[in-house]
Amino acid sequence: MNRRLRFVLLTIAGLAAATLLAAFIAMYVVLQPERFTALLQSQARQAGLELTLANPASPTLWPTPALELNGLSLSARGNSTPMIAASHGRLVLPWHTLLGGDTVVSRLELEGARIDLDAINAYIDTLPSRSSMASAFLPTIDAGFSITRGTLLRGNRLLLSNVQVDAGRLANGQRFPLTLAARTGDGTPYSVDLKTTPQLTEGVLTLGDVALAIASEPRFKAALAGEALWRGGADIGAQLAGKITRADAETYDVVANVTPANQSDPLSIALRLDGKNDHADVRLPPLELAQWWSTFGTGGSLTLPPVRGSIAADVIDAGGIHIEGLRIQAGDAPASTSSTADTPKAKTP
């Protein structure tokens, strides 16, 4: 190796070492982990929340600039039960932050997250109620987020395990992707893949070009497309259309319409399903259905669910239940006759 080549290599190595040293200095000077930890806790308190960490946030450069959060716990003020508790978290930062740019978060990652629905509901109950006449709004999420090895509970009861969530940035006019996979308490796997473009205009939120895929392999998979809108309160309209395929390869055409509440009728979901041997044309009022479901286990008399329409199925196998020749007619208003005015036009994938 001649002297000139050795000098060039030493120069390159020196520049690389100086760059790496400068990056580490910037990482501690610009990010200031202790200050950033205090900033996160201050922002949480402004929302009526308490954020605690087992250790102050620590910076890292690999594979991207980030702040490592260990032993993260987020709870409502005055409530000792955490809404979210995670063994590890990361706040991913853009590279320009190390060059003196604004300290912004580009992604939040949580590992081993434990999410308690009861604690979340208790916190929501403390928030000021919105008027039923209030316009729609879009809760912007500046940073994408992910959850790995999560658990969803209601108190001490397990609802979902092995929860995996990956979401992009939620902003007006931008395509929003969301994927979710989990297992129910009995081990049944489910997955959801959603893509849509939210658009908030003059108090009306439109979810355009909705592409929704739901699956429980190997039991069934569904692919739906369409649009939805929200004008505020219970004024929700939607129309989705697509196909559902069962494990036995039988395919059903499905159309779902959400009709907003009005002065005489509650919010309702009209569902039509057509297969070779099975057909359903029903209307489901979500609020009444939830109230009916909540009466189970209270010791009261058993009543039929508030479902109107018709169901015709040659064979139904659900767990240990086997039914042949099922025919149900409830009410006199099948879903296909429900009004779909003020709902967007569906697009079949």
Results as ranks from 00 to 15, higher is better:
338 S>Y: 05
219 R>W: 06
95 W>F: 11
279 H>D: 04
78 G>E: 06
175 R>W: 06
265 D>Q: 14
7 F>N: 13
209 D>E: 14
75 S>V: 06
75 S>R: 13
2 N>L: 03
189 P>C: 08
131 S>H: 00
137 F>A: 14
293 W>V: 10
307 V>F: 11
231 R>A: 01
224 L>T: 11
179 T>Y: 05
259 T>C: 04
237 G>N: 09
142 D>T: 12
171 A>D: 10
332 D>Q: 15
264 S>M: 07
161 S>Y: 05
337 T>D: 14
266 P>Y: 00
63 P>S: 10
299 G>F: 02
139 P>M: 07
282 V>P: 02
255 V>S: 04
304 L>H: 12
9 L>V: 03
333 A>T: 14
143 A>P: 02
193 D>Y: 03
101 G>K: 04
324 E>Y: 06
189 P>H: 05
99 L>G: 11
213 A>V: 08
42 S>Q: 12
7 F>Q: 14
273 L>N: 06
50 E>F: 01
125 D>W: 00
311 I>H: 11
214 I>N: 05
2 N>G: 15
248 D>P: 12
330 A>H: 04
103 T>E: 08
291 Q>C: 06
279 H>L: 02
292 W>R: 08
112 G>L: 10
229 L>N: 10
345 K>G: 13
346 A>S: 15
138 L>V: 07
188 T>V: 11
98 L>N: 06
195 K>P: 01
275 G>W: 00
246 R>G: 01
278 D>K: 07
16 A>L: 11
251 T>P: 13
275 G>S: 02
41 Q>G: 11
329 Q>N: 14
75 S>N: 07
28 Y>E: 08
343 T>M: 13
151 T>G: 05
310 S>P: 01
104 V>F: 03
196 T>Q: 13
101 G>M: 02
142 D>L: 15
118 D>R: 12
325 G>Y: 04
332 D>N: 15
106 S>R: 10
221 K>S: 06
33 P>R: 03
331 G>F: 06
102 D>G: 14
17 A>D: 00
267 L>R: 02
272 R>K: 06
253 D>Q: 13
94 P>C: 07
255 V>Q: 11
24 F>N: 12
65 P>Y: 01
11 T>H: 02
346 A>H: 13
18 A>I: 08
100 G>W: 07
171 A>S: 11
106 S>E: 10
84 I>P: 03
246 R>S: 00
325 G>H: 14
190 Y>A: 14
155 G>F: 06
138 L>Q: 12
297 G>E: 01
229 L>G: 01
83 M>S: 13
332 D>C: 05
26 A>Y: 10
197 T>Y: 08
230 W>D: 04
19 T>W: 11
349 P>E: 12
265 D>R: 08
136 A>D: 00
92 V>F: 08
52 T>D: 06
